[in-house]
Write a protein that binds this DNA or RNA. Sequence first.
DNA 1: CCGTGGAATTGGTCTATACAGCTATCAACA
DNA 2: TGTTGATAGCTGTATAGACCAATTCCACGG
Lengths: 240, 240
Amino acid sequence: MKQKTTAMLPLYRKVKNYIIDQIDSGELKPQQKIPSENQLVRIFGISRMTVNRAVRELTDEGFLVRLAGVGTFVAEIKVQSHLLEVHDIADEITARGHAYSRRVIEHDFIVAKTDILSRMAVSAATPVFHCLILHFEQYVPIQLENRYVNPVVFPGFGSVDLTKTTPYEYLMRVAPLQRAEHVVSAISPKTSVRAALELKDGEACLLLERRTWVKDKVATYVQLYHPGPRYSLKDQFTRK
Amino acid sequence: MKQKTTAMLPLYRKVKNYIIDQIDSGELKPQQKIPSENQLVRIFGISRMTVNRAVRELTDEGFLVRLAGVGTFVAEIKVQSHLLEVHDIADEITARGHAYSRRVIEHDFIVAKTDILSRMAVSAATPVFHCLILHFEQYVPIQLENRYVNPVVFPGFGSVDLTKTTPYEYLMRVAPLQRAEHVVSAISPKTSVRAALELKDGEACLLLERRTWVKDKVATYVQLYHPGPRYSLKDQFTRK
DNA sequence: CCGTGGAATTGGTCTATACAGCTATCAACA
DNA sequence: TGTTGATAGCTGTATAGACCAATTCCACGG
């Protein structure tokens, strides 16, 4: 029986894991310098070509940034890939040079309905954090954020001042995520959503549902409602 | 003045370009075997490690598939990356084990409206191919495909029998694409679309617009309409 | 006729070494 | 004081050689 134990991993994979684990655990933080190739050579007792491959691949994958003559550094958290990058809506809007504002409608600690619970894979006895925030671009509502947060992963979320910090900002600062799932669909909004987004009768709504994981636990489940006439998702890619 | 000419590219990059160019030009087709590492060593007169790096990176990037003891082959066209993979809807449905069928509503050679022309970056004097196809999953309409095809890139598209071949199948066979753009939005369908997709009054519609490029020319522009209640886009990613 | 056991081919990994180019530092010099 | 220049440490690329593992194929023997 052939097991993929750590012991039989190729050396360059071990080095990659060594570095990734330090980033995940927080021992290595963004901007921080990692050991040089020659230091890693000494640490592992392997050749520099092998270390080089490990570090180069992590760089290609976006975890590290290298600067010849200076060193190798942990990259800023990258949470994108795929069309659906995980961004802060506030950053996005200000990046367009537009005015951003938001209104925190709810921020509480609730026992969620069963459909939410099942999506978060938490037991019915566990209350979860919840918030409902309306985001404005140029004073026009552009996103309604209905978010559920797992208190096991983010125990401090209840005491965050969401008027000063966006959920994104807080969650990213506390724990880097490792997995995400997106579902995009078009819906006819319920009246409450329609009212919030100032949609006319019959106008459609783009719903983006996102689940993120931290250490194999669902960290958050969020429903992002967007006004159909004023919002679209765009994605480009070129190869080579 | 330092120019990034071909001459001063690193060797492994030259090998990568050599292979990619053969794929792009059609000299190497999917499934086809490429020269072995030792053959490339002889062709370029460089060391195997360098060839290995080139081929390994192309494999990581999805252009090639390797099989130890057998050889290296050109991968099936990968036109994904990002959430919005470019697939054949027919394959997708049959892969789910469902019945697939389609109805070709229109297939013609028209002078498109200005908004279409501008999206395709062709002059007003140039007629383009057009087709309108309704796709069914289990005999229920699931996608309305409104496609415009640049005759400069695909001169033979007008004479394809779309009841036997899907546009995707034909287009992919004739020319691999190099760039794509997707825009996802939620709309309230016009009556014609609503009727085709058998939507009830007030039901939303998920619109996916896609432009693809071949050799810096817009090859196709397609609008894909989906019934909101019966369709969603899903995307997952895990790192590591 | 079938299977078994090399041998050849191919990819996967690793080593030891080399040289080029870039950058920060610091000492020597004008 | 301010500039120059050497140097040490870093990444980037490339080489030649080696061993292993997976696969294919063919010759040989039952």
